[in-house]
Every structure is written in structure tokens, then in C-alpha cells.
Design a protein around this nucleic acid. Structure first.
Lengths: 191, 191
DNA sequence: AAAGGAACTTAACCTAGTTTAAGATGTTAT
DNA sequence: ATAACATCTTAAACTAGGTTAAGTTCCTTT
């Protein structure tokens, strides 16, 4: 179970056996069913979540009740409401399981400790955050400069494993359009 | 000159005199005139830039020649084309001076060394990146869920010092609308 | 197997924002 | 001071995407 996490960390940093044990001891295992919430505003986001199997999504619910997907987190992705997790303030984003999902979770305190004991992990998280920034910048520019067709094609490249795992209205919410319009776009593409 | 940078770092981490010297020695001073480019695709982004005075902007030029502003970087902000800087690949974003600007710059190699010699700086950059992520998430949701009026009001909150320093067409490009439409929106607000 | 609900499609009508174009105002260089 | 250019405004015609609504298909639950 923790092996998947260690594998992922070792893609970017080297770890001693002792460090691996510290890490394993710091993350707790959690299993949730489809449709369960991991974070639900205004609760504080208590954990950083690493997905071992299954899929989570993080989204914002605007004043009209429209759902806007920030990210999908399938296997080996991390997610939390970063603002809430770091500052211990009320969360604004929902995190929900789209499938039965197995997770490794870590609290803020445990993470702070772990970073002190295994300083190299700072590097891992720096890289993780850098990648998140690059992804968000690209996504922002996509929304600002591309038509839905193109955004859809990029979604397919970014999440090839998800196309047939997610209902279309969730993909529409990720692309920033209504399910009705997305349906129109798809039929346009297939001709 | 470097004092502004050290002050900024000390908001989040403590530094010894020796560390301060290492930092000072790693950043070089650079002065550019209004309209000069710091990064121009496809050149590789050689530096991380810290703005001491003046203002930079980072933007993407799409296939139609439309300019999309990623961020403005006035005093005490950092900016670079992160992807290009980290991976030494061709840049995709322009960074241009909106005013005569004084900068402190650091190369990728110097930064890597500095992070080894002053490991606490990893914390500073982790925090910097975390803030960048939260800002980008908020901006993305804004574009997806808010009308231009509201986005404009948020721009004013985020960059109170910039409202009267920038031409309107740049603010329009940050908000993701044409200057023509932005003009209409402003006149609507002022009544 | 039937019933109820969720997800998807299609289509007619609506609206926020774009495009094009022209005129007005401001700025810079000579 | 004047030319030349950049910026800002207004308005008319247009388009991408939203809204509403009805019908269809697919899943669950019983």
C-alpha cells in the first residue's frame, strides 16, 4: 500500500530505509466509497491526500450552484484544499470520491514533522508544487485563449485514463461549459 | 538594493549574517527600461527575477496574436517562465518591463547551489510556490465562474497599486476580455 | 421485470462578450 | 507646434456558449 507512495517519491528523490520507515509511519490508510466527501466546506481540510487507487475530484460550487472542477486526482495524484490545509481556515473547495478510492493521508502536523526529519522531502514537494503551478498556468491560458474543442483535446492528453471513467457532465465542468454545450461540441467533433 | 530581497525573505524564514552574504552574492543586479524584454520566446528563461522597483508582466501570445496576461509583477514579486527556467526548454511566455525596472536575478545553477548552502530557503520557495498555486486556483475559478465586473473588482483588490499605473488594455488582457468590452464594463460600473 | 431517476441529446431562443470601424483624446518625437 | 502614433470610447452587427425544455437512453433499486 505504502509502496506505491514510496515509488512515487523515489521518482524524484533518494531515500534510505530509515527514511522510508518514517514516511510509512506518517501516512495513514483510508478507504472511501464512491460519492463520499473527503473535504466539505466549511470544514477545515485536515489532510493532504495521496490517491493509491480510484479517483477524487476537487471542485468549487459557485453562488448559482454550478460546479467548477479544479482537478481530477486519479492514481498517484495528490490533492487537498491547499489554502485550508496550510492556514487551518475554512475550506472553500469540495473533495469528493468519484469511485471507491484508497488513500494515504497525512495531517499538517505530521507533515511538518516529517519534513524536519526527512528534509529531502522539501525537494519533492517543491517539485510537486512547481508542476502544479505549470499545470495551472497552462489551464488558465487554455480557458482564456482556446475554444472548447481544443480544451477537450488537451483534457484527453492530460488524463488519458479518465475519458471513459467519468460521466460527461464532469468533463464539461472541468472544461468550463454546460453539459448541453459539451454534448453539442462532441457531436461536432465526431463528424 | 539586496536589502529589499533580504527583508522579503525574512518575512518567512530567519537568516544568519553568513547566510545573508551567501544570498547577496548569488543574486545579480539588473536594470531595464520600459518595454524591454526579460524573456522572449523561444529563448530559454535564464533567471528567476525578483522585482526591486518598477513592474514586469508575464504573458502568452496566442496564435491570433492576442496577448494573455499571466501575472503582473510589481515591487517584491517574483517572476520567470517557470517551465523554461526549470527544464531549460524553450520559453513560451514573454516577460516584459512595463516601467523602468530594477531587478535582482539568479541563474538556475546559482539557485541550486544556494538552496544546498542555505537549505532553509527551500522553505521560503515552498511557501512562495504554495501561494502561487492558491492565487492561480482562485484566478482560474474567477474566469470560470465570474462576470467581468466581479473579476475587475478582484483585480483591484489584488493589485491596488497598479490601477492607475497600467494602460487599460493590459488590465483587459489580464481579465481575459477585449479592451473595447472592458471600456463598456467600466462605464457601466461608474453609473 | 418494472419503475424511477440519473445522464445524455437535440433544438429554439437568449446573452455576454467579440469584431469591425470610426471618432476622440493623449503622448512622444522632431 | 505639429506630425505620428498609441490609447480610449461608442456603437452596430455578429458568434460562442448559456438556458430552457422535451425526449431518449441508461442505471439502480425494488
Amino acid at each position: 500500500m505504502h509502496a506505491v507512495l514510496l515509488q512515487e517519491l523515489k521518482k524524484h528523490i533518494n531515500l534510505t530505509a530509515a527514511e522510508e520507515e518514517l514516511i510509512t509511519a506518517s501516512f495513514r490508510y483510508k478507504k472511501v466509497r464512491k460519492s463520499q466527501f473527503l473535504v466539505q466546506p466549511p470544514d477545515i481540510a485536515l489532510y493532504e491526500h495521496f490517491v493509491v487507487s480510484g479517483c477524487l475530484m476537487e471542485y468549487y460550487l459557485d453562488d448559482n450552484g454550478t460546479q467548477h472542477t479544479l482537478i481530477f486526482a486519479p492514481e498517484k495524484w495528490w490533492t487537498t484544499d491547499l489554502h485550508s490545509f496550510l492556514k487551518k481556515e475554512e475550506s472553500r473547495y469540495y473533495i469528493e470520491a468519484l469511485e471507491d478510492t484508497e488513500l494515504l493521508i497525512i495531517t499538517r502536523e505530521a507533515l511538518d514533522n516529517l519534513l524536519k526529519e526527512v528534509p529531502l522531502l522539501n525537494n519533492y514537494f517543491r517539485i510537486l508544487y512547481q508542476n502544479a503551478i505549470m499545470g495551472l498556468e497552462e489551464r488558465l491560458l487554455n480557458v482564456l485563449s482556446s475554444k472548447v474543442e481544443e480544451r477537450y483535446l488537451r483534457f484527453l492528453k492530460k488524463y488519458p485514463q479518465l475519458e471513459n471513467r467519468l460521466p460527461q457532465y464532469l468533463i464539461a465542468s472541468y472544461l468550463g461549459v454546460t453539459p448541453e454545450f459539451f454534448s453539442r461540441v462532441k457531436s461536432r467533433i465526431h463528424r
